[in-house]
Design a protein around this nucleic acid. Sequence first.
DNA 1: ACCCTCGGGACTACCCGTTGCT
DNA 2: AGCAACGGGTAGTCCCGAGGGT
Lengths: 207, 207, 207, 207
Amino acid sequence: LATRDQLLEAAAIEIQRVGFDDATIEAITKAAGVTPGALYFHFRSKEAIAQTLIERQHQTIREAAHEIQQQVNAPSLVVMMMMCDELARGLIDEPLVRAGIRLTIDRSTFGSRAGDPYRDWLVTFTDLAGRAESAGETTGALPPDVLAHFIVPAFAGVQLLSDTLTRRTDLLLRVHEMWQVLILAVVPGARQESMFSAARRVFAQPS
Amino acid sequence: LATRDQLLEAAAIEIQRVGFDDATIEAITKAAGVTPGALYFHFRSKEAIAQTLIERQHQTIREAAHEIQQQVNAPSLVVMMMMCDELARGLIDEPLVRAGIRLTIDRSTFGSRAGDPYRDWLVTFTDLAGRAESAGETTGALPPDVLAHFIVPAFAGVQLLSDTLTRRTDLLLRVHEMWQVLILAVVPGARQESMFSAARRVFAQPS
Amino acid sequence: LATRDQLLEAAAIEIQRVGFDDATIEAITKAAGVTPGALYFHFRSKEAIAQTLIERQHQTIREAAHEIQQQVNAPSLVVMMMMCDELARGLIDEPLVRAGIRLTIDRSTFGSRAGDPYRDWLVTFTDLAGRAESAGETTGALPPDVLAHFIVPAFAGVQLLSDTLTRRTDLLLRVHEMWQVLILAVVPGARQESMFSAARRVFAQPS
Amino acid sequence: LATRDQLLEAAAIEIQRVGFDDATIEAITKAAGVTPGALYFHFRSKEAIAQTLIERQHQTIREAAHEIQQQVNAPSLVVMMMMCDELARGLIDEPLVRAGIRLTIDRSTFGSRAGDPYRDWLVTFTDLAGRAESAGETTGALPPDVLAHFIVPAFAGVQLLSDTLTRRTDLLLRVHEMWQVLILAVVPGARQESMFSAARRVFAQPS
DNA sequence: ACCCTCGGGACTACCCGTTGCT
DNA sequence: AGCAACGGGTAGTCCCGAGGGT
């Protein structure tokens, strides 16, 4: 029902704002305009809401990634950039994404499930890195899985610092800078310039 | 008093284990072998303990960094590696460091103070990056502050994922890999090999 | 409607299992395969179900007692035994009877109505005890009402202990033993032996 | 501390009045003049209070029984009567005893521990019944354990009905009547009259 | 002067019986 | 008869002072 979605959105906003522990049921229900009873009709517990939120965001990102890979006919490296860009923009203005990430990082609450989104990204990026290497976009000095195992956490860290220090106002800039380093590290000299300009196009500010 | 230190250590262990919110006064005092009254004699509040913990860790790291910069006569880039290595090892086995980082990342609790450690690292690394450029260790393609603004979050991210995915068992390996990327990106071709072997020495497993 | 009976049976099973307070509407409706709405179409409230259950069990027992008194041409003392036997067997395998007794004993919920079944038994047994005395089955050392006021609670107690200690597996045995004591107490010596064998026939195990 | 006892007494009064489930923490603490915090300092949970109450009553009764057996030089049958009398009087005016019995009967909450008091009485009464037989107080027609297995539940039932029907105002009378039946059943004819008068002395109304 | 037992108060997640609207 | 929602209420917990012991 519509109430369920209202609750999820209210929960996302609240969780993204104050974190899971400090997001009270009262605040969520009040924001959604319903009563606690209604909430516990749709969700078994507070954790169940968070789980749903995580899954939804997880799935949202997967779909976006899938779409990008499908629709766009671009170098694998550029696909990676677009995925980073997509996620970064979501982190700036979509409560669902923000809440999902917050829940993934403040792992106080969830056991092993918390790492799932990371694992997902790792396999996707490992795959893309492999294709990039095959396409000659990278020098091959670094194995694809090593590269993926660096890009994903690097992005996570950039996002984390940007959030802590500037409330993500400089996020796009920092992600752009991150890709400049990556291009310098893995793209053959001859193709670096075109990659730089591709990056500039991807991370151009307007939403 | 000795009680104060016992309290701090018990708090560090507990916070590193379950996070600030779920670390109860009761658990901390029980672990320290004292009563809540004793705790509130030494600290004004639960937050005060966390603040003390953060400051202590902050200061511990600063001292270590200072020592490294002083004692070692090494390229600035290698100094950075050693600082990363130092922190990584602390993150693996020192409760104080682990608790400090946890408190910095799970920022639920503290307003703006949470970013202080990051800012500290940023200025230190910006400085070192400048020196590295002057010494010809880097190509200069990236301004020192841009470089620092990438290394620090990248390390934070690597640590975060390593913690989430492997409880930091692969942390040293990942940090080493991170530096391989960085070397490829910023060190002039002629000096890369010596930097690679320097990195190998720094991140050699034995503690 | 058939739904009504399903509801009653499910409620009986649930109440007999966990008691009135802990028997949730959700569990009952789920067991009956209907929705809360359906329940509230047939019953005004949760208490109404319990009342219906009590009345039904009350009536079931009355009918059984009536039948025994009517059909059987036996000494009044033996009629009493048969009624005890009947109820005991119901307490072992009929959810309706079990639930009814549970509701009568866990009197948390109902005010004065709870004693009704007891009062009923008391008048019936007082009457039977009077007839027994007239028929010379008893010595008359104890007035009929005193005798009834002992047999009824004694049975209640035997049932209670048997339930608590052995989940009623030894109920029939204990009720038989109870009647052995009663026979020794009130039956004239000359007729005791025949009463003992009558008791043995009544409380013979096979259902 | 004194607070602990106040809480136990308040809990006893409340539980004896409305039962375990309907005895709210708020009511108990309010009656004891303390706050929930104080209660949860002394007891881990609501159930823990009930457990303590049961144990205390259990122990109280045991001590009383021990004292009776020690101090009094009386026939075993009379000792049993005195124990019944003692418990009956406790059931009339001592909240602790009333609450203990209520918790034992409304067994909704506690698993197997609930039967412990019964088991205790059974062994004590079996022992006393054996001594009575040896002393020639009983005919020996009933084995001691059968006798005990009848007296204990009979008392329980008498108490239960008296509570339900008259709020225990006729309890002493009913227990007296119960013993009249028992004397008729098991005491040799020649000694019955003296036992009857012993019973009259034991169950004389004044406290 | 230091330490601790004990108590206070507020708040939260959770659940449940019940009822409109369809 | 069903789906969805309501609102009241309870156990549990936690952080934190104020009073006595040592």
